[in-house]
C-alpha cells in the first residue's frame, strides 16, 4: 500500500513528465491556449497512459524481457525479445489512441473538433511512449503498480497543462513584447513553472525506510544496458550538486551504483573521441581542399 502511495505522488510531482523529464512538450505547448481544451487533452492523455502502461507491462512481462517466454515451455527460456520493445509498445499505443479517438468523436464532437490533429498525435506524444519505457527501465513490479504509474504520470501531465493553460489565459491581456508572443513566452513560462516544481526535487530520498524506487540496481537484464544506464543517470540527476551534497550530508549513498555512472562516463568519453575524430577529419578535408 505504502509503495502505491509513494509511487503515486512521486510520479505526479517529483518525476513530473513535463517538469522533470520534459516529455510531451509539443502538445503541451500547442494545445494550452484554452483551459477547456487543455482539460480535454489532459484527460485523454491520462486515459491513454493508464491503459497503455499496464498493457505494455503485460507485453514486457510475458513476451519481451529476457526469459519472459518461459511460460511457453522450458525450451523458450533463452529468448530475449526486448529489442522489439519500441515497436510493440508504439503499436499498442497507436491502437489505444485510435480507440480513444473513436470514443471522443462519438461522445464529444465539440472536444473532438477543438483537439483537432492533436488527438491522433497523442500516439506520438513522447510522454506516452516515455511512460511505457520508464515503466520498463524502472522495473515496475506488478500490474497494479504499472497501472498506478501510468495513471499518476498522466495526472502529473494533466496538472502541468492545466496550470499553463490557466496562465496563458491570464496573460492574454499582458503586454508581452511582440517577438515573444505565442510560443516564446510559453517556453519562458514553462521554465519558470519548472522552477516552481523544483520544490519537489530530491524529496523523499532522505528517509530511513523510503528507499527510492528507482534505485533498484538489479535493473532489467536487457541487451541494451548502456541505454538503461543512461536513463538512470539522467533520472537520478547524478550531477546535481544539491542532491550530492545533501546525500553526503545525510550519509546515504546517492542511490546510484558506481558502475552505472562509470558506464555512462565511458560512453560520453567514447562519443567525445568520435566527435573529435570527426572534427579532425573535417579539418583535414578543409586543408586538402
Amino acid at each position: 500500500m505504502l509503495e502505491h502511495v509513494e509511487l503515486f505522488f512521486r510520479s505526479i510531482f517529483i518525476d513530473n513528465m513535463i517538469f522533470a523529464t520534459f516529455l510531451g512538450m509539443c502538445s503541451y505547448l500547442a494545445v494550452s491556449k484554452k483551459v477547456t481544451t487543455a482539460v480535454g487533452l489532459g484527460a485523454a492523455v491520462i486515459f491513454v497512459l493508464a491503459v497503455t502502461v499496464p498493457l505494455n507491462w503485460l507485453l514486457d512481462q510475458y513476451l519481451l524481457r529476457d526469459g519472459a517466454l518461459t511460460w511457453l515451455g522450458p525450451e523458450y527460456a533463452d529468448y530475449n525479445l526486448s529489442f522489439l520493445s519500441f515497436i510493440l509498445f508504439i503499436a499498442t499505443i497507436a491502437t489505444m489512441v485510435q480507440l480513444v479517438e473513436i470514443v471522443v468523436e462519438k461522445f464529444s464532437p465539440a472536444l473532438y473538433n477543438s483537439l483537432g490533429i492533436f488527438l491522433p498525435l497523442i500516439a506520438v506524444n513522447c510522454a506516452i511512449l516515455g511512460g511505457s519505457l520508464f515503466m520498463q527501465s524502472r522495473d515496475i513490479q506488478s500490474l497494479g503498480l504499472a497501472f498506478n504509474y501510468g495513471l499518476s504520470s498522466g495526472i502529473g501531465w494533466f496538472l502541468a497543462i492545466l496550470a499553463i493553460a490557466a496562465i496563458r489565459e491570464k496573460i492574454r491581456y499582458s503586454n508581452v513584447p511582440p517577438p515573444l508572443r505565442g510560443l516564446g513566452i510559453t517556453f519562458i513560462i514553462t521554465g519558470l513553472m519548472g522552477i516552481g516544481f523544483q520544490s519537489f526535487g530530491g524529496m523523499l530520498t532522505g528517509g530511513d525506510d523510503a528507499a527510492p524506487a528507482e534505485g533498484t540496481t538489479a535493473g532489467v537484464p536487457t541487451n541494451n544496458e548502456d541505454a538503461t544506464a543512461e536513463t538512470k543517470v539522467f533520472l537520478t540527476r547524478d550531477d546535481d550538486p544539491i542532491s550530492k551534497e545533501n546525500a553526503a550530508k545525510l550519509g546515504t549513498t546517492a542511490s546510484e551504483p558506481a558502475n552505472l555512472s562509470e558506464n555512462a562516463k565511458q560512453e560520453t568519453e567514447i562519443t567525445k573521441d568520435l566527435f573529435n575524430k570527426e572534427k579532425e577529419v573535417s579539418y583535414h578535408e578543409a586543408i586538402n581542399k
Binding site: 516544481f197 520544490s199 524529496m203 542532491s243 545533501n246
Partner: peptide
C-alpha cells in the same frame, strides 16, 4: 520532507503562484 531545502517557503510560494 525535502532535506535538500530546509527552507522551502519560497519554493512553495512559487509553486502556488504557478
Amino acid at each position: 520532507f525535502n532535506p535538500a531545502y530546509p527552507e522551502g517557503v519560497f519554493l512553495a510560494i512559487l509553486l502556488m503562484n504557478v
